[in-house]
Design a protein around this nucleic acid. Structure first.
Lengths: 355, 355
DNA sequence: ATCCACAAAGAAAACGCTTTCTCTTGGAGC
DNA sequence: GCTCCAAGAGAAAGCGTTTTCTTTGTGGAT
């Protein structure tokens, strides 16, 4: 090992704002103002600056910009699991909306792992995110106290710490789920199972509760052995379905807390030779893209990723630019999308089935 | 609108390295050295510094760090489409490996859109990414010249500009695809269709060529009308399958350039009442998680996301830390994973089918 | 005991911008 | 023709680090 420092400053021409200034024969202040479209710069000078910028191929340094201005221009987005298709769809929407509003995004996937989550939060802090959307659907909020304490605008889904500057995206699980249960009830189902998400997730508890509530509304008795906990993954769906199949008396329909679970259920049903929807009706939740092409196409409850993304960015932006700590709530609604994984229960008037 | 500037510096205590220094009664240089684990700091002082850091809840500012050190510590990852499950899986792997190696990642999804791609590149430039992995599988390379010109270490899949500092991940499409074709041939298929990806993608062309080559090796004639171009999406798979179904004579097996396409094919087959694998065998490519649970589970050619991610980060890191411009190549291999979407062609010895 | 080399800590100079402050101009008003 | 003011451009002071350069102190060799 030589003593040479392994870092070589100025490996090439500096290509900074100074070189642009020199070439355009103006001060660096003018270059900065031009780039930031400050209206007071003379049009002629501005043109000269832009020319210089293009000729030199100059690109401003974001880090320096952030440092100088005190604004990072970044919004954090924390999701639970990037490999669950729901989230990439959400990320895409969030990114689009964020960019429209002049922000860039910083994605963090927690994988339901508290350790990873800590790393994520640290990263958001270190990078000075101006606002953070926590779309993990209810994972341990206390971890996010650090962000709240530092007065970073936050948006949670469903529930979050009750603090100024923390807004909420209230998802109306009730509506979609009621529609789902009513749909099943209308078809004649009285034996309806439910596979929840991990019960430590707020959203999973909400969905579960909404299901029970809807069941009662329809005058259908809940059967605890048909109400099993999943984990929002394919494998979780399969395992949960196995549990349900072990019951002496089986439900004629199963509602799932998300589509991945439902796809697992579809798979397990296929494995044991149960035909969907003839022998078993299945309803998913989220309405991911894949739901359109499962076999059979999945009846699912849609929660719009775009709405979620729009509301989140909007909430954050309001906090950031308007200042103040609104602590608002935004409603996100959900509704049933009927496809082909639901039908009359076995035996009941199956000959009436049309189309 | 008041004349008050909408930016308020120092809204709280500064909580910078200076306050830590003051509290620990050392200079800021010592704090910096402590944080960066420079071995020359006295253990006693270091402890004092750490205490101060924790008591204050100090978090260093990444932007300032990057500016001061000239190292951003960020690796760019450009993917084509975040909503295609292959990519989130890849991202996850890449992130894990990158973090292990002390880097953070900056994700950009291009959506096959040149305009977006330009934005992505600009962002990477502005944020001073120290290296970029371009995992778009062959989209227009010229766009990345900007990065290459600035001497940023680059990794491409399959093919990239022939320049110092640009490494390649050579995927051995041939092997997996040959296995796939041989598998079909062994089952007795002689009529094999192929749905490619968008032909402007290098990887799509390679897979297509590899398929044709393997066909020839097996002494099977290629039928142009069974060789149709898809776009690596679900809908693309459905449409491509429709085209194939229009053919007067239909293939008994279809190989797809990726799993999403294959899932589309499965769906279309279901729609028209073709049973897979009894009436039609289907092979996918990528072996995404979902392949395990399609109905039937999809025989697919696996290309390891983890291998890809590891090789990419390794290549980048070698460029960055070792300096020099290696221009290396890394082999990524692929192999067939047999599941249940492939079987004897219809009519041929179907009674021999075991298990 | 004196000097020197060396280790460890502090002072200060970057890093590449933004933004405040200051200065120069040119024109309106008298 | 002179003053005053506003507009536009430049100078310079940060922003929060890292890293070089200095300084200070310590132990060993002479």
């Amino acid at each position: 090992m030589s003593k040479t420092p392994n870092r070589s400053r100025k490996q090439r021409a500096p290509l900074d704002i100074r070189s642009v200034a020199a070439r355009a024969n103006v001060s660096i202040a003018t270059v900065s103002r031009t780039i930031n479209r400050v209206p007071t710069v003379n049009a002629k000078l501005a043109k000269r600056v832009w020319t210089a910028i293009h000729e030199l191929g100059y690109v401003p340094n974001t880090q320096a910009r952030a440092l100088g201005s005190g604004r990072s221009g970044m919004l954090g987005l924390v999701v639970s699991e990037i490999t669950n298709p729901f989230f990439p769809e959400l990320i895409q929407g969030f990114e689009d909306v964020a960019i429209e509003n002049g922000f860039e995004i910083l994605i963090s996937s927690t994988n339901y792992d508290p350790k990873r989550m800590e790393v994520c939060i640290r990263r958001l802090l270190e990078r000075k995110a101006e606002g953070v959307a926590i779309m993990t659907f209810g994972i341990e909020q206390p971890l996010f106290e650090q962000l709240a304490e530092r007065n970073i605008p936050l948006v949670f889904v469903d529930a979050g710490p009750d603090r100024p500057g923390v807004s909420l995206l209230k998802v109306d699980y009730g509506h979609g789920i009621r529609q789902g249960v009513q749909h099943l009830a209308a078809l004649g189902h009285r034996k309806i199972g439910f596979i929840s998400g991990p019960m430590r997730l707020h959203s999973a508890r909400s969905r579960s509760a909404a299901f029970l509530h809807a069941l009662k509304e329809c005058g259908i008795a809940a059967r605890p052995e048909w109400h099993v906990e999943g984990d929002h993954t394919l494998e979780g769906g399969i395992k949960a379905m196995e549990k349900i199949l072990e019951c002496a008396s089986r439900p004629s329909a199963v509602m799932c807390s998300n589509d991945m679970t439902a796809i697992g259920v579809l798979h397990k049903a296929f494995r044991v030779g149960l035909r969907v929807p003839a022998d078993l009706s299945v309803i998913g939740y989220d309405d991911i893209q894949m739901a359109k092409v499962t076999i059979p196409p999945l009846t699912s409850i849609q929660m719009s990723r775009v709405d979620l993304a729009k509301a989140a960015v909007r909430a954050l932006k309001e906090h950031i630019v308007e200042g103040g700590n609104p602590q608002r709530e935004y409603k996100i609604d959900t509704h049933l999308v009927v496809r082909e994984s639901t039908a009359y229960p076995p035996g009941a008037m199956s000959d009436l089935k049309s189309s």
